[in-house]
């Protein structure tokens, strides 16, 4: 029988695993990882949980190449399932459908790090020493004075928009830039995006908020 990990968007597999295992009746269990990207240590934990429940892992299938590589590294019988991973369907750019928006209310203080695969809309400030990173866009309805990373999984079309853009450092995909030294013009929202491989800051345009 096959153990199917839950949908990434609904539940974390670690939370659902005990429940899923308790429903298994046969000694040998195949594992379908879906589109989860699992590291070696994730998979080792998974194996341990499976054997603790008195089962044995059979074949492992997954849509993400990383998962299959990690599983093979652990000496498991792993193969790629046919359905292509959703990440590879649209590698770049990352789409920003409304449901893929993470909304956070509150100021990020020094030492905080807000991370998401989704576009982040922050209602508050990013203080110096704080970080905000998203696989898609970073939108700050407030003052951005810390470090912002948009497209942290490689999307080069990602943008950083803030009501007051005065960051210590900006990163888009793999490109890093120091923040501007001088004060930005008051009352002007600005955005940063990649232009010819460099991060450029300019007044925010309304399109940047719309679905691309």
């Amino acid at each position: 029988m096959t153990l199917r990990l839950p949908d990434q968007r609904l539940d974390h597999w670690r939370d659902r695993l005990p429940d899923l295992l308790s429903r298994c009746s046969q000694p040998i269990v195949d594992l379908d990882c879906g589109d989860w990207v699992l590291t070696c240590s994730d998979l080792a934990d998974l194996c341990a949980a499976v054997s603790e429940a008195g089962h044995q892992l059979g074949r492992i299938t997954g849509q993400a190449a990383e998962t299959v590589v990690s599983a093979s590294a652990l000496g498991l019988d792993a193969s790629r399932s046919n359905t292509p991973s959703s990440r590879e369907l649209q590698p770049n750019p990352v789409t920003t459908a409304p449901s893929e928006l993470l909304f956070h209310h509150g100021t990020l203080r020094s030492g905080d790090h807000l991370q998401s695969k989704r576009t982040i809309l922050l209602y508050g400030d990013v203080n110096p020493g704080a970080r905000i990173s998203s696989a898609a866009d970073v939108l700050v309805w407030g003052r951005l004075r810390g470090v912002a990373h948009a497209g942290c999984e490689g999307s080069t079309t990602a943008k950083i928009v803030a009501l007051q853009l005065r960051p210590l450092q900006l990163r888009i995909a793999d490109v890093v830039a120091r923040g501007p030294e001088d004060l930005p013009q008051a009352g002007l929202a600005e955005q940063a995006e990649l232009k010819d491989g460099v991060i450029a800051i300019e007044p925010a345009v309304i399109q940047s908020f719309q679905k691309r």
């Binding site: 990020l108 203080r109 020094s110 030492g111 203080n127 110096p128 020493g129």
Partner: peptide, 9 residues
């Protein structure tokens, strides 16, 4: 100020 900010958080 930076350390105070961290502590407040």
């Amino acid at each position: 100020v930076r350390d105070a900010d961290r502590v407040i958080g």
